[in-house]
Simulated assay, not measured.
Amino acid sequence: MSPFPALLPDEPVDSVAHLIQTALTPVFMLSGIGTLLNLFNTRLARVSDHIEKTTESLDEANSATQRRRLRQHLTHLHRRTLLLDAAILLGAIGGASACGAAFVLFLGSLRDSAVAWWLVLMFGVALTCTVGALGMFLCDSLAAWHGLRMTTSWTRMPKPKS
């Protein structure tokens, strides 16, 4: 007899432990996705600040070569914002799907119904979107590294003689 008969049916401990373990998986995934979203948003804010500084530099540029390089750099930064926007969108969808998976587990345990296909769908979408968000973040990182190499090569180029 269970000490709390109204709360838990007479289930084996292994079954209840497995239910708790399974229910916690989407919660841990959601925590990781939240951390990734924080990282993506911070990075997007830094790129946005860099766009503002580059735009100010473009307004103050003296030569056509400087303006051309700054416009190229702005185009590069704009592409990075699109990649980070996509990473944030995919991360948010992944987080919502992880919440949905936890909710489906909760409903399934309450109603004792067959919700396995909903669970697989929600958790699958969460995993797919998280992988997509990480892929967009990798693309942004590659773009940032490429931009850093380009900026470094600009500073090493000899300045035109006036």
Rank of each mutant, 00 (worst) to 15 (best):
A126Q: 03
W145K: 06
S57D: 09
K161V: 15
T155I: 15
T55S: 12
C139S: 08
G94I: 02
R71D: 03
L83F: 11
R111V: 12
H76A: 15
T128K: 13
F4R: 03
I51F: 07
R111F: 14
L39M: 07
A143R: 12
L58R: 00
G135D: 06
S63Y: 09
G135Y: 13
V131S: 02
R156T: 08
V27F: 01
D49F: 15
F40P: 00
A133W: 00
N38F: 15
D85R: 11
Q66R: 04
A92Y: 13
M1T: 06
L82C: 03
A96T: 13
G34H: 01
A98K: 03
G100C: 12
T54M: 05
L83N: 07
A101S: 12
I20Y: 07
A114S: 07
E52S: 11
T155H: 13
L37K: 09
L19Y: 04
H73K: 12
P9R: 14
G91R: 15
A86N: 06
V131P: 00
S141L: 14
L7W: 12
W154S: 07
V16W: 09
V131E: 00
L138E: 01
L127E: 02
I93M: 10
M1F: 09
A126S: 14
M1H: 04
H78D: 13
E60A: 15
A114E: 07
V115R: 06
A92G: 14
L89H: 10
R67Q: 01
L90N: 12
L105I: 08
L8Y: 11
I20C: 06
W145S: 04
I51T: 03
P26Y: 09
S113V: 14
W117I: 08
A133Y: 01
P9S: 10
R111Y: 10
A143S: 14
T128R: 13
L148D: 04
M122W: 07
A86D: 04
A17K: 03
S97D: 11
W118C: 05
A101Q: 08
K53M: 12
N62I: 15
L134P: 00
R69P: 02
G147M: 14
R67L: 00
A23Q: 02
R79N: 02
T128P: 01
G32Y: 00
R71F: 06
L84D: 02
L44D: 07
T128A: 15
W117T: 05
P158S: 11
P9T: 09
R111H: 04
H78Q: 13
L83I: 04
A61E: 00
T128N: 10
R156Q: 11
Q66M: 09
A64Y: 11
L134Q: 03
D10F: 06
L8T: 04
R69S: 11
L138S: 05
R69Q: 14
L107S: 08
G95F: 11
T22L: 13
L77V: 05
T130W: 09
F106L: 09
T65A: 14
F106G: 03
Q72Y: 10
A6C: 07
T25E: 10
A114Q: 05
R80P: 00
I93P: 01
T55V: 02
V27M: 08
F106C: 06
S57V: 03
H18Y: 06
W145P: 00
G132R: 05
